[in-house]
């Protein structure tokens, strides 16, 4: 596995339909970071900037010290998992995971072995030929994670990946995610509404407000009783 790369948003500014964002942040190689904040605070924009779906008006996006600002999404060392729609409905699970290796699905024997291994690792062995609609919501997100493993990029971005799962499933998925991160050393950035998810990930956290990083630190500190005022206002623990 490739290990992680440092991610840096250097004085990045952009405006989208009247929404102004301004980010200046550095995420260490191999670190875990949770992005927490209210709807419209700019969490998804933060991820879209790293992935290249949104381009900054000014400032630079660097990954592993290399300027990525002008690069297409496909040429960035990044994988992304969305809340939904990670799988293509008419392709079976193996093919959906295989897309992480070849977008035209021309797969070698090694590729196939890797796919099988990734499915095994995410607990989906035996479900290769199922269609996404035949899987549960949790299984679909596991398949998305299997594709991340096959894709093997140093940075993993997740946009509220477990928001539509129940509490027990969510805990299980968080455990799987942290385990995978430990094994691969990926730099992991996850957007979530839930401070307890951020704490469970056991890494750093950025608290976003109005398109800005309003507070940052270890997740357990940030969302603890001694956390900053703005964060406590959000969590309701005043």
């Amino acid at each position: 596995m490739s290990g992680g790369l440092e991610v840096e948003l250097r004085d990045v500014r952009l405006s989208l339909d009247g929404f102004e964002a301004c980010f200046d942040a550095r995420l260490e190689a191999g670190s875990i970071t949770a992005l927490v904040g209210a709807s419209g605070s700019g969490k998804s924009t933060f991820l879209n900037l790293i992935a290249g779906f949104d381009r900054p008006g000014s400032g630079r996006v660097l990954i592993g010290g290399v300027d990525m600002t002008e690069r297409d999404p496909a040429n960035r060392p990044v994988s992304m998992v969305f809340q939904e729609n990670n799988l293509f409905g008419h392709l079976d699970i193996a093919a959906n995971v295989g897309l992480g290796r070849s977008p035209s699905l021309r797969l070698s024997a090694t590729d196939r072995a890797d796919i099988a291994q990734a499915l095994e690792r995410t607990g989906l062995a035996g479900k290769e030929r199922r269609k996404p609609a035949e899987l549960s919501g949790g299984e679909r997100q596991r398949a998305a994670l299997a594709r991340v493993l096959v894709r093997d990029r140093p940075v993993l971005l997740l946009d509220e990946p477990f928001a539509s799962l129940g509490p027990a499933l969510r805990t299980g998925m968080l455990d799987l995610l942290t385990a995978l991160q430990r094994e691969t050393g990926m730099t992991l950035v996850m957007v979530t509404h839930h401070p307890e998810d951020a704490v469970a990930l056991g890494g750093q956290a950025l608290f976003l407000e109005d398109g800005r990083v309003a507070a940052s630190g270890r997740a357990s500190n940030l969302f603890g009783p001694q956390g900053p005022e703005a964060v406590r206002r959000y969590t309701g623990r005043t």
Binding site: D72, A74, V78, M80, Q83, L99, P103
Partner: peptide, 26 residues
């Protein structure tokens, strides 16, 4: 088609043919 589908296709590096086969045609 949800916008995330297109984002995903862009990230996976799908060309026009693959995009047609995997997203547009279905």
């Amino acid at each position: 088609v949800p916008a995330d589908r297109w984002r995903l296709a862009a990230q996976l590096g799908m060309g026009p043919a693959a995009r047609f086969r995997v997203i547009e045609w279905p």
